[in-house]
Design a protein around this nucleic acid. Structure first.
Lengths: 118, 118
DNA sequence: ACATATGAGTAGTATATACTACACACTACA
DNA sequence: TGTAGTGTGTAGTATATACTACTCATATGT
């Protein structure tokens, strides 16, 4: 668990770089307005992951899911936090209830909701 | 929305203080290991809400729901964040799906889950 | 009247967050 | 052989977070 975020970025970036020189540290860092040396350090785990906003931009550039990348950085998307903060007691209950259910059970539940049964 | 957290604390504390002198700023602050002047400023909105840990202790002392108090402070409980971070893609989907459902619909969903239908 | 307790005022601090600026050695290629 | 680009090293910074320490006038209780 030492440097999941950095390794994830480096792996993905290097894979993209094999076929596209726009994915050098320098050029990628430029596109998301970061210093190349800073991104380099992040990839190697010498610096903590950047801010949520930069992570979201990074995810877009790398074609990755921003929720997943935020999670690797130990963070949660601002819009999800807002969902909880609007009805904290309710979402506290539901999240603790769903915590130990399988992915499958949760998806079934959501599709029930989506079908507008209630 | 200026100072919901502080007002909430002050209201609840003063109500308790009417029948129990243990709810003076000083004595309450002592129990949760805060400087009284700091708690005073928080209640009046001159300081931002304290850390999550202090908010949880405060909620316990005041007999309030810590999820609600954290939300008033613009925060979310660490254990709920952890639920999301463990399965970010899944809980991203579910939270955005449930965001616009009524309390009732969500509670129905929870009871379905609790009944162990799946 | 006097000790004690109360809320509030002023000033300052340690630590973390989220970076930037600049310089360097190495590599590729034209 | 030069120049353009690559990843990385060192050093430093601005801002926010989360508080403490001490002080003081006022209010309360005996």
């Amino acid at each position: 668990m030492a440097n999941e975020f950095g390794e994830y970025v480096r792996d993905k970036r290097e894979r993209l770089r094999k076929t596209d020189p726009a994915f050098s540290i320098r050029r990628l860092a430029d596109r998301i307005n970061l210093e190349p040396s800073y991104l380099s350090k992040i990839e190697r785990g010498l610096e903590a992951p950047p801010s949520c906003k930069k992570i979201v931009l990074l995810a877009e550039e790398l074609g990755e899911d921003s929720d997943v990348m935020l999670a690797l950085a130990g963070k949660v998307s601002a819009d999800l936090l807002e969902v909880i903060r609007r009805r904290p007691a309710l979402f506290g209950i539901i999240l603790r209830e769903l915590r130990d259910l399988s992915d499958y059970a949760i998806l079934r539940l959501v599709s029930e909701a989506r079908d507008g049964k209630w």
